[in-house]
Design a binder for these strands. Structure first.
Lengths: 372, 372
DNA sequence: TGTTGGCACTCTGTTTCTTCGAGTGCTAAT
DNA sequence: ATTAGCACTCGAAGAAACAGAGTGCCAACA
């Protein structure tokens, strides 16, 4: 059953006030905001119903109301208004994303910006598609060393300096270079078989094991290139939040975020279209450690078939509206920089972003719940 | 004036007990440890004197004693006994440092190990000596792109994929490659002058600005190579320490450590010989934010004239002896891996490490200090 | 029927007071 | 020089009292 417009307004008011103050909010405070012309008593009736329908809860009888995850979900899906960024904010983001930085740096910088602007820890995740090698080059240095240079299909260039315990001559290196270019380009990691390596070894008349070294580097590079990388910046911001004044609680979450690489597998299945935000509220997170935190992520086009995620983590009492606006602008900026052109998008664009969330069930709370 | 042997024993006992419990320690507790055959009353006399000489202090009358920075300094310099690592610890460190990892990874891994083994945040700093370019290679890809490959004097290889808005032919690339190899190798960053670049441009008959692009990359690479890099791992461990139960305090220190790159300039002047530990206790740290923390750092030989620092940060009530043992073994391991051979040093070696600290002044505390 | 003022009630956070005990410094005895 | 004894101090912890914010409900009202 739909909520009446007034209930929605009240719910939104409670949530916004709670986000602002982190204190349970009472009927009086809402009435004082003045938006709806009715008395605290009326609001109390409405609040009671919002509680019984699961959108709010009371820490104890005779305290104000606090939003439940369901309440936040409703707020995010239907109630909250998209915020505009201030001109300064737009300018700052644009400025900081416009530097002549290499993609990796740009992305980690974007995380830093997100964290600083939202005052929450920010995460960045880059998923790389399986790459292939586009070109091999072996640069002969001297009898005992050469450099392997690999150009990947993603335009990344990888290299390695190889020192040999034995001598090779320049023609051998040349031969190997040609061979590898002929047979090892354009294929994926698991297409490189021991058989191929042996064949190349024979063809180059290499009895020093150089072929194997090169092949190993190729495989290693391809394997690495597939890995998703995840970074976290601004963990310390958590300590600003009243809900993390308990050091143990803070420690638990921070450990989860920084250790064990949980970050990487966190929202991978949440990868979705560009210019779309996703909000995971409290128990909607699969990880136990995140059950009373919220995560907002935006996906962006990182160019070359790569897709990136940028997001922030915070308590469920997160300023969804503000964070969404900033994240989406940052993500749009990254898409522009990495995917398409090199200038920043107009700041108005982000209003069109879709905030997509989970479905939710309103649950009826029984009048009386016996326990013990 | 030297402390009597018994005073030293008592001071050591106080410090060790305080490190263990984080509570002010009383005369009774020390007597109970049994090492010295005298009664609590005697110990009280001795304690009183240690207080008046500045090694200990009392949070308030009728509380136990707490070490002052001077007390810790004395402990570190003269009192503390070098600890041996357990076989498991030796095995774990050796195991984790023996992987076939590239140097960068190895160093950041070492930080992780240090943090996990000591339960304090760990920092790693790498200072790179100014590098020169040993060799230039330009790899022609197609009319619109080529790769720059630089081999540095440090054996590092850097590269960049350049895409051009205009066409070049292979001979031009070749010509530039030869030119750069002839004139831009073996020199330092600031030896590259605009004049040189112009000269090269003319010599190569390059009117497309390609020379400038290559030169810019060379300069950028050289600049980068000089920078010291600093990492911090395990910041969250701070939250374990009772002295950081106050989230604001913890936040302040963590922010200092993680932001603004203070880390890099922290103990740079503390660079010192290999296999030597340095301990900075509380106010001995120059940074205001570290005034009631301690830092222990070990320097290791990172090979190729590079020098690395690995260390931990914690409250002044740090387990100096335990941390010193672990850090020195890790540093020795890194030196071996990166500098000399590739096997781990024997675990006994670390006992020979010098713990070098600051000089200190014993200050006489007047019987009565009037204030207000 | 929905809204409102009034009022008794509940519950928490804060403050104040008390108590408890660890630890001290001092003194006198050994 | 060391030690036992003792009075004293001071903070931590607990108990009691208090204030106030907020509620639910009832009766009055539009």
């Amino acid at each position: 059953m739909e909520l009446t417009p007034r209930k929605k307004k009240i719910l939104a008011a409670v949530i916004e006030e709670y986000i602002r103050t982190a204190e349970p909010v009472g009927s009086k405070a809402i009435a004082a905001k003045g938006n709806l012309g009715c008395s605290p008593a009326t609001i109390r009736n409405e609040l009671a119903e919002l509680v019984s329908r699961g959108y709010l809860e009371q820490p104890h009888t005779s305290a104000g109301r606090v939003p439940t995850p369901l309440g936040y979900r409703m707020y995010v899906n239907e109630l909250m208004e998209t915020q505009d960024l201030s001109d300064e904010e737009v300018a700052e983001i644009a400025e900081r994303l416009s530097g002549p930085l290499p993609p990796d740096q740009l992305m980690s910088d974007a995380g830093r910006i997100a964290s600083q602007l939202t005052n929450y820890p920010a995460l960045t995740i880059t998923a790389r598609p399986a790459a292939t090698i586009r070109r091999f080059d072996l640069i002969y240095l001297d009898a005992n060393s050469f450099i392997i240079v690999l150009l990947l299909s993603t335009d990344a260039v990888k290299n390695k300096l190889v020192r040999l315990p034995v001598s090779v001559d320049q023609t051998m290196i040349q031969k190997l270079s040609t061979l590898f270019n002929a047979h090892f380009t354009g294929i994926s990691e698991n297409a490189i078989t021991p058989g191929m390596i042996h064949a190349a070894e024979r063809a180059a008349e290499d009895n020093l094991g150089i072929t194997a070294v090169i092949a190993a580097f190729a495989i290693e590079t391809l394997t690495d290139s597939e890995q998703t990388q995840a970074y976290l910046v601004g963990e310390t911001q958590l300590l600003n939040q009243p809900e993390f004044r308990d050091p143990d609680k803070a420690h638990r979450l921070m450990r989860y975020l920084t250790e064990g690489g949980h970050l990487a597998d966190l929202p991978l299945e949440e990868m979705h279209g560009d210019n779309e935000l996703r909000v995971l509220i409290g128990p909607e997170n699969v990880a136990e450690e995140l059950k009373d935190s919220s995560v907002i992520i935006a996906t962006y086009d990182a160019g070359d078939n790569m897709r990136g995620i940028i997001g922030v983590v915070g308590p469920t009492r997160m300023d969804y509206s503000r964070v969404a606006a900033k994240l989406s602008y940052i993500a749009a900026g990254l898409s522009k920089r990495l995917g398409g052109g090199s200038s920043m998008p107009p700041p108005g664009l982000d209003n069109k972003l879709i905030i997509k969330g989970e479905d939710f069930d309103e649950r009826e709370i029984k009048e009386e719940e016996n326990e013990g």
